[in-house]
C-alpha cells in the first residue's frame, strides 16, 4: 500500500515536470517537444539537488522498464498508411533500411574508435 502510494506520488512528480515543460515550450513558442525539455529540466533539478533520486527513481525505473509498451498503440497507426507503403514499397523500404544501417554503423564506429582503449569494466 505504501509502495503503491509512493509510486503514484513519484509518477505525479514526473508528470508535473512534463506538464511544466510542455507549458514552457508552448509559451516560448519553441520548436522542440515538451518531453525533451522535460528530460533536461529533470536532469538539471537532479544535479542541483532540488529533486533527489529517491523522489523519482522507483516510478522512473518502472516506466522505463515498460517503455516499449507505449510504442505498441503508436505502431498500430502504421495500418493507416498501408497504401503509401504499397505504392512506393521498395523505394521506401530501401530508404529506411539504408538510412538506418548506415548511421547505426557510423555512430557506433566513431564512438568505439574514439574510445578504443576503454575496457568494458571501466565504464
Amino acid at each position: 500500500m505504501r509502495k503503491a502510494l509512493r509510486m503514484l506520488g513519484q509518477t505525479a512528480l514526473l508528470w508535473g515536470v512534463y506538464w511544466v515543460s510542455n507549458r514552457f515550450v508552448t509559451a516560448a513558442g519553441l520548436p522542440v517537444p515538451g518531453n525533451v525539455v522535460g528530460v533536461l529540466l529533470l536532469f538539471t533539478l537532479l544535479c542541483l539537488g532540488v529533486i533527489r533520486l529517491e523522489h523519482v527513481q522507483e516510478a522512473a525505473d518502472f516506466l522505463l522498464r515498460h517503455l516499449v509498451f507505449f510504442f505498441i498503440p503508436i505502431a498500430v497507426g502504421l495500418m493507416n498508411w498501408g497504401q503509401v507503403f504499397q505504392d512506393h514499397g521498395l523505394v521506401l523500404l530501401a530508404a529506411i533500411v539504408v538510412s538506418s544501417l548506415l548511421p547505426f554503423w557510423a555512430v557506433g564506429f566513431i564512438t568505439q574508435w574514439l574510445h578504443r582503449k576503454d575496457g568494458e569494466c571501466e565504464l
Partner: peptide, 28 residues
Amino acid sequence: YQEYAPAREIMTFLLGPATVGLAVPLYR
C-alpha cells in the same frame, strides 16, 4: 484506427512522464 484512437490516447498518457524519467538513468 480512428476507433482505436481513444484507447491509444489512454495507453500513451504516461509516455511523456516516462520519457522525462530518462533523466534518472542519465543522472546515474
